[in-house]
Computed example of a mutant assay.
Amino acid sequence: MKLFTRILNALLAIAILCTLIAAVGSAITKKPVLLSVIRSNSMYPVWERGDMVIIKNLYEKDIIENGDIVFFETEEGNLADKGWIAHRVMDGNESAGFITKGDANDSTDQNVGTGLIDREWIAAKAFTIGETPIVIPKLGHLSLLVEKYQGNSFLLPAIALILAVLIGFGELKSSRIRQKKEIGIELQLIYIFGGLTIVVIMGATMLASGQKMNVIYEVSEQGQGVLMGSEVGILQIGDEVSQPLSELKNGGFFPLIGSTTTKDKQIVPSHKNIKLSQGQQLETTYTVTAQQPGAYESTIQVGLFYPFLPASFIYFLSEKSYWLALVVVSFIPGLPLIIYPMIDGKMRRGILKYIRKRKRKLRSALPF
């Protein structure tokens, strides 16, 4: 029974770890990574809504064949606003495009208003053993629930608070037992991994709400002009051009901190550092002031952060690096749980005893 419990716990830990990796990877790349949640029944009976599918991310050299179940995002047609779609390739090729169809659908996607699927729109395909995709039933329902309320900034802090309360309740419940028994390492790991789970949840949420914009422009001494692929174009020294940047929106109960940074001194955002109250919505812009001749390809990073630190300090970190600000703010709510095992005397002694025991076993196993 003890062995079964350990195996079950290990499998649960692996499932949680893979889910977190997939969530963070998807937030960073804006594409499905490692795992993908199924949002419809269009591929029934291969899988159903709420299932989690193991995927293989594709590169340019990878070949797509008829029968492959691919994950794509269209830029036109009636599927353009549906996010990532998982359908089977029925025909086509990389140069002309692919014909796709859900196994449960009567017609191909192209027969109901979607054009041929370009190769560059396809990010992954289902990982299979033989011809059978690897599906984890129902594991994605929690992700779908979170997505349903992702506009509510109150939800994920509430989840983090619930995790902390559950761990604290478990600690109180088992405190009497632990007074009579030797303290092992399991409870300490629960605290540490519980804290890290909160960190990942917070980081993934803020990362998903952030935006990164590339601004291409040129400053010339001769005059203005149009530049291919640029909204700003070619500016003459002294010119100023303003363009829309992003929409900042707080749909939850907690205030959010909006931070807009860029390394280009010729670009000035309309709102560098702002506190968004509940329900507040704000359209932001940026202004390019032509000062130094040259060709520029600059980045503007827009971030929305939970107010775990003062707004001025979050902006200070964002100016150094958006990723620095993201990591620091993400760690604030999870840090108490992570460091608690080292503060509590009994837990700290248990960790040190466990480390010493492992070192002795390692030394005895070495041939020298």
Rank of each mutant, 00 (worst) to 15 (best):
N9G: 13
A10E: 03
C18R: 02
L20W: 00
A23H: 01
V24N: 10
K31V: 01
L34S: 15
S36Y: 03
E48V: 08
G50Y: 00
V53A: 12
G67Y: 07
F71I: 15
E75G: 14
G77C: 12
L79F: 14
D81N: 14
K82L: 13
D91W: 15
N111K: 15
R119T: 12
K125S: 13
P133K: 01
L139D: 01
K148S: 12
G151E: 10
P157T: 03
I162R: 00
I162W: 00
L163E: 08
A164R: 02
L166R: 02
I167W: 03
K173C: 07
K173M: 13
S174H: 10
S175N: 10
G184R: 08
L189H: 02
L189C: 06
I190T: 08
Y191I: 01
T197Y: 00
I198L: 03
A204W: 02
M206V: 01
K212R: 13
I216E: 08
I216C: 09
V226R: 05
L227C: 07
L227V: 06
G229R: 06
D239E: 08
D239S: 06
N250L: 05
I257Q: 12
I257P: 03
K263W: 05
K263L: 12
L276C: 04
L276W: 02
S277G: 14
Q280P: 08
Q280Y: 09
Q280C: 11
Q280L: 07
T284C: 03
Y296R: 05
I300W: 06
I300Y: 07
F308Y: 15
S312C: 02
F313M: 11
I314T: 04
S318Y: 00
V329I: 14
F331V: 07
I332H: 06
G334P: 02
I351W: 13
I351R: 14
K353P: 04
Y354F: 14
K361V: 15
R363P: 04
P367V: 09
